[in-house]
Amino acid sequence: MKRVIVACGSGVATSQTVASKVNRLLKERKVDAVVEAVDLKSVERYMDSSVAYITITKVTKEYPIPVINGIAFLTGVGMKQELEKLIDIINKAK
């Protein structure tokens, strides 16, 4: 199963909320992936085993996997576009 990570500062509140919502949305669309919340300090160690990174914070560096705007899942603004982008990434991942 393909993994997507979500990170916020502590990996507890906001990232858990987004991970839960995205897991539900992917399940409704029958997309085979799991979304896990992690703390910002441990993001790097999940890069090799994940197909995408949903970020709640502003990203200032390059990552080896695609980065998705997590704020869209909190506010609903642009959520459909970010979800479609995520589904496309998951479907194209090996």
Rank of each mutant, 00 (worst) to 15 (best):
M1H: 08
K2S: 09
V4T: 02
I5H: 01
V6P: 02
V6W: 09
A7T: 13
C8P: 04
S10Q: 11
S10H: 12
G11K: 06
A13T: 09
T14Y: 09
T14I: 10
T14H: 13
T14N: 10
S15K: 03
S15M: 10
Q16H: 10
Q16L: 13
V18Q: 03
V18L: 09
V18R: 03
K21C: 12
K21V: 13
N23V: 01
R24Q: 15
R24G: 06
R24C: 11
R24L: 14
K27N: 13
R29Y: 05
R29P: 08
K30F: 13
K30Y: 08
A33L: 02
A33K: 07
A33R: 01
V34T: 13
V35P: 04
E36G: 00
E36N: 08
A37M: 01
A37S: 12
V38D: 02
D39H: 14
L40F: 11
S42I: 11
S42C: 10
M47N: 03
M47F: 12
D48Y: 04
S49F: 08
S50F: 06
S50N: 01
S50W: 02
V51Y: 05
Y53M: 12
Y53Q: 11
I56Y: 06
I56P: 00
T57E: 14
T57W: 00
T57K: 03
T57Q: 06
T60Q: 08
K61G: 05
E62I: 10
Y63P: 00
Y63M: 07
I65Q: 05
I65T: 05
I65L: 09
P66H: 05
P66V: 04
N69H: 05
G70W: 02
I71R: 10
I71Y: 07
L74N: 03
L74G: 01
G76K: 12
G76P: 12
G76M: 12
V77I: 15
L83Y: 06
E84Y: 06
K85S: 10
L86N: 00
I87M: 08
I87V: 14
D88Q: 14
D88Y: 03
I89Y: 02
I89L: 08
I89H: 07
I90N: 01
I90T: 09
N91C: 07
N91G: 07
K92T: 08
K92E: 14
K92C: 08
A93M: 05
K94E: 13
K94P: 15
K94I: 00
